[in-house]
Simulated scan of single mutants.
Amino acid sequence: MAAEDNTRTGIGQVTFLTVAEVALVMRVSKMTVYRLVHSGELAAVRVGKSFRVPEKAVDEYLRNAYFDAG
Rank of each mutant, 00 (worst) to 15 (best):
H38T: 12
A2V: 08
L24V: 06
I11M: 13
A2T: 03
P54S: 04
T32V: 11
T18H: 01
R35M: 11
D59E: 14
K30H: 07
A44S: 15
A3L: 10
T9D: 13
G10F: 00
K30L: 00
V33A: 03
F67G: 04
L36V: 00
D68F: 11
Y61V: 05
M26Y: 04
A69S: 13
Y34I: 11
G70Q: 10
L62R: 11
M26D: 09
D5W: 04
M31C: 09
R52S: 06
R46F: 09
I11L: 14
R52N: 05
R35I: 02
G10C: 04
V37N: 05
V53W: 04
N6C: 11
A20Y: 09
I11K: 12
A44K: 04
L42K: 02
H38R: 13
E4F: 04
A57Q: 03
A44G: 14
Y34R: 06
S29T: 15
R27H: 10
G10H: 01
A2I: 05
R52C: 04
Y61T: 03
L42Q: 03
V28T: 08
Y61F: 15
T9N: 10
F16A: 03
G10N: 01
I11N: 08
A65Y: 03
T9Q: 07
A23E: 06
H38P: 00
F67V: 13
V37R: 07
T32R: 14
E55I: 06
A57C: 07
A3G: 12
G10Q: 01
G40N: 07
R52D: 05
S50V: 05
A69R: 15
F51Y: 15
T15R: 05
A23C: 06
K30E: 15
A2H: 06
A57V: 08
T18D: 02
V22L: 02
V19C: 00
E41C: 11
M31A: 14
G40D: 10
N64F: 06
S39L: 11
N6I: 04
L17G: 03
D5M: 10
Y61C: 06
N64G: 09
A43E: 14
A43T: 11
A65K: 09
R63V: 11
A2M: 07
F16Q: 00
T15V: 15
R52H: 02
G48F: 04
E41D: 14
R46V: 06
A2W: 04
V58Y: 01
K56E: 14
Y34N: 14
Y61E: 04
V19N: 00
S50D: 15
F67Y: 12
V53K: 02
T15M: 07
T32G: 05
S50L: 13
R8C: 12
E4K: 01
R8H: 09
V53L: 13
H38G: 05
P54Y: 01
F51T: 03
V28D: 02
Y66G: 07
G48Y: 02
V25H: 10
D5T: 08
M26G: 06
A57T: 08
F67D: 12
V45S: 11
G40T: 00
D68L: 12
F16K: 01
Y66W: 10
M26E: 12
V37H: 06
T32W: 07
A69W: 13
Q13W: 05
T18L: 03
A57M: 05
R35F: 06
S39Y: 06
S39F: 04
V53R: 01
G70A: 12
A3K: 10
T15C: 09
E60R: 07
E41Y: 11
H38W: 03
A69D: 14
T7C: 07
